[in-house]
Amino acid sequence: MSIEFKSVEHTYSPDTPFAYHALKGVDLKIKKGTMCALIGHTGSGKSTLIQHINALLLPTAGEVNIEDVIITATDKPSSLKGLRKKAGLVFQFPEYQLFEETILKDVIFGPKNFGATEEEATSIAKEVLSLVGLDESYLERSPFELSGGQKRRVAIAGILAMEPEILVLDEPTAGLDPQGAKDMLDLFKRINETGKTVIIVSHDMDQVLSYCDEVIVMNKGKVEEHVATSELFEKVDYLSSLSIDLPTITSFIHQLNQNGFHIDHSIKNLNELAKAIRGEINE
């Protein structure tokens, strides 16, 4: 088991007029090597939840177990560095975390903090930068002269360079153009295929359907559903009660079926859908 939450509670600013109960008894298990989506409304507790994964926030009650590092309200390991290396967290708009003079220096900042030597870090940095699609000509450039999308790639490379076992991304494609978003998600899929656990917070159900194996639905500080992706999108009424849209393709199948077709809901891509429709028409 990669990640395990046992009745985790989190309250912000407890005992003040600003107290806010953000997580209300979260139970969650995520297996190693899954690609998992985390969906839910703004304010449903997604960001609070993911910050528990690398102990930026500590539970106010309950227990969090990340790759056998156990954190409870009263007890945590004396240094959290080990955990932070295992679980890489990419915040929303991560381009705000860039600060070094050159891209190379910024990317090796993380690995060096975790004890890698300059040479080790540099060779990893070159590797991850080419993974995110930036060639060696970028190494010595300033991160501040890049475009928004490129800055984000550098920031994500900075986390990937730490070689985390778990990669958590908070809306990594927000504000990217469609091609940039697709490249980014393809990259996360490739990382997932090397055996790493990937968790993506997303509002784009098309992305969730085509890339993720499992979906966690959060609502009002609780995990309401944790199921396989295809299973979730069969619950049309439940999703509309949360005003979560269906993926385009699922919504299309749903409408076809309402008009007399009998097409499998779990179809994920256009080719299969076309085949299924042809099959139905020929019958």
Binding site: Q51, L56, L89, N113
Partner: peptide
């Protein structure tokens, strides 16, 4: 913003 950046850098081992 400060908190957000501190958290982002803490995630990078600061």
């Amino acid at each position: 913003e400060t908190q957000r950046i501190m958290k982002a850098q803490a995630s990078r081992g600061v």
